[in-house]
């Protein structure tokens, strides 16, 4: 189904603040099979120059999936037909335990591509104090029925 082109350029209100916890970082690191001590051990993280344990580079997907943008019924996205096209994380600094972050999501492009709908989304992740942490670029493809 065609996505609503009126949503091109739309920026959604900031997501609810999300507190990055050591436990969630460890759970995520376990789930990707990564035993790096800098995800688990504060001392190891400090020895590497971080104030606390940091999150794996792909961790922000956890928060960007909470974005209200994709669930907006007006957009017309059929989740069962969605596949992930592209993903990128651009860091200002590592995301770490104790950060309280919000996401501001913008739909930058929607277009038809070989019978599929392709949508590009940018998410700006900042701490609640306004410090930029990471920008994510996400392309999802809704396959044609």
């Amino acid at each position: 189904m065609a996505l609503n082109r009126d949503y091109i350029g739309r920026t959604f209100p900031p997501s609810e603040p999300y507190e990055v916890s050591r436990v969630k970082i460890r759970e995520f690191a376990d789930a990707i099979g990564d035993d790096n001590p800098i995800y688990r051990d504060q001392e190891a993280a400090k020895a590497a120059g971080h104030p606390d344990v940091i999150a794996p580079p792909t961790f922000p997907i956890v928060v960007s999936l909470l974005s209200p943008a994709l669930e907006d019924p007006g957009l017309g996205l059929n989740f069962s037909m969605v596949v992930h096209g592209e993903q990128r994380f651009e860091y200002t600094r590592p995301l770490r335990a104790g950060d309280v972050i919000t996401c501001v999501t913008t739909i930058t492009e929607i277009k038809s591509l070989a019978g599929n709908e392709k949508m590009s989304v940018e998410t700006d992740i900042k701490t609640v104090e306004g410090e930029p942490v990471c920008k994510t670029h996400n392309v999802i493809v809704e396959r044609g029925a």
């Binding site: 592209e86 994380f89 860091y91 590592p94």
Partner: peptide
């Protein structure tokens, strides 16, 4: 794992 400190990764992108 190659670089040791995951904080050294400043940008990471892929196409599936």
């Amino acid at each position: 794992d190659w670089v040791g400190d995951p904080g050294a990764v400043v940008d990471y992108g892929v196409r599936f």
